[in-house]
Design a protein around this nucleic acid. Structure first.
Lengths: 244, 244
DNA sequence: GAGTGGTCTAGACCACTGT
DNA sequence: CAGTGGTCTAGACCACTCT
């Protein structure tokens, strides 16, 4: 190949290939059950060497958009419960042990979006949302009170889905039922005191300090699709974070 | 090179090279001002190809132990104030803007380590520690009350150093004065209420909820060298975390 | 101009999964 | 067995820095 096989962009070749493949993944071109085209196929298709494709896919794998298996192929990554739990759940006991919490669904209702919801989820005016309230329970004790807000448009009929299944983790459900994969989240953590309602559900005194965790979760297309506000009783648990 | 140039380990070659280079960095073999040996030098030295060395160093660079500059060379990474601020400081205003806080030194004393200090910093019985208390100030308002505990053994005479310089960020100082580089930290975050002392320093009412951030910082040898407990007023600020 | 790291290629061998 | 990704090599060209 004497000529530059692609645009004469300033970006390195492998980086261009990477973005093209990522775009095709985002567009949902590849079935989750089947492997992506192999390195040699991509190389032929884009008219570059196998090593260049390798470097492109290596970066995509590092971002956990795909998973690679020697001898089998490259697959679009899927979110198992375990991955969500290890990656998105940061509450551990004060003994540093992370336990899978149980879930008690409190309410689930369709409502008009408030202005704050519109802002956080980037909604148009007048859009409806589904509001879910639930308790997370560890060792039979209520630890976290969660309020989850999603757009009715991206997750239509979430109510009936939840009435049937009552899953512990929602992100795998978003992926299975709505083909929406959560890849990133931003959390804002502050300290508040429990009011009457939170105190009742968490079985604590009014005025107890609580961790308030505001999380906005983003889909693979980098669209905010879920806003979740958690209130966590940190008497016997805490939020754990590792900085590398 | 017909024979395997190194141990017949099950680890890939580049990974063995990586660990050997990392060990030499940890041992302080390379001056921070001079570049490491070049890829070709390493390749000759370890009797492998340049590409293998490249992959090894690429991983070390990804872990931010070294920085690479085209045309200049590879250097042991140093912690600038800016890096510490962007990487280890997670408190932002509720407007999402991160401001460099000012610092007011409150106390600085040498003491016997308590049992909890011994446990967190992995100290021998009877070791002394230096305890630093300081206020972090944003827009002339006290936001964070910090208590910092370090071993007298790893940071001898920290008191007089602090009396001379009063730096905003301590990690660059640890590196400059004690050749101890912080590469990792573990944080445990919970919610507490302000007692009389904290309320006084943070200029808030007793009973105000505060974020308590317990951080243990680890050196490049993976030894815990600093325990820091911060109490943050989250009325106008919060802790921000991104999950990727 | 010599030396550095960054990109790209081409080809080899390997371990592993399918058939 | 052919096909996959993982490792390793050797060599080319480039952009950049230093002297």
């Amino acid at each position: 190949m004497a000529n530059p096989p692609l645009l004469p962009s300033s970006q390195p070749l492998f980086s261009q290939i990477k973005h093209m493949i990522v775009d095709r993944i985002k567009a949902g071109e590849f079935n989750i059950a089947e492997p992506l085209p192999s390195e040699t196929e991509f190389a032929r298709y884009y008219n570059v060497s196998q090593g260049t494709v390798r470097k492109a896919i290596a970066e995509i794998a590092a971002e956990k958009l795909v998973v690679r298996f020697r001898g089998k192929g490259t697959f679009v990554a899927s979110h198992t419960e375990e991955r969500e739990h290890s990656h998105f759940f940061h509450i551990v006991g004060n003994d540093r042990v992370k336990k899978l919490p149980g879930t008690k669904l409190l309410t689930c209702a369709r409502r008009n979006a408030t202005k704050e919801m519109e802002k956080r989820l980037n909604l148009k005016k007048g859009e409806d949302v589904t509001v879910v309230e639930r308790l997370r329970i560890v060792d039979d004790l209520p630890i976290i009170l969660e309020t989850i807000i999603v757009s009715q448009k991206t997750f239509p009929d979430l109510r009936s889905v939840l009435n049937e299944t009552v899953p512990n983790e929602l992100y795998p459900l978003y992926e299975a039922e709505y083909q929406t994969r959560i890849v990133r989240a931003e959390e804002c953590i502050s300290a508040v005191v429990a009011g009457a309602r939170k105190a009742k559900y968490l079985n604590i005194d009014i005025g107890t300090p609580l961790l308030q965790i505001d999380r906005v979760a983003f889909s693979i297309e980098d669209i905010p699709v879920e806003w979740r506000r958690s209130h966590c009783n940190t008497a016997n648990h805490h939020y754990q974070n590792t900085l590398n």
